[in-house]
Amino acid sequence: MSAFLAMGGYAMYVWPAYAVFFIVLIADYLNPSLRRRRNLRELRSRMARQAARQQRNPTPP
């Protein structure tokens, strides 16, 4: 196991490289989810405000 981690003496190059790979891609994958949640929340509050306005000033038939 320690031989595996040592990567023949090149551990300080190999493992950071793999770390960068995973960290960047995880960040990339999660990015739209955060945006989506925020957008839907904002859209819901906008819709609620619109509905409230409609109630106060019902459009004439």
Partner: peptide, 17 residues
């Protein structure tokens, strides 16, 4: 496969907005 998974997530979010 990852590109498709990431792209589709991003496209869905964009389409919604």
């Amino acid at each position: 496969f990852y590109y498709i998974a990431s792209l589709f997530g991003r496209v869905r979010t964009d389409l919604l907005s």
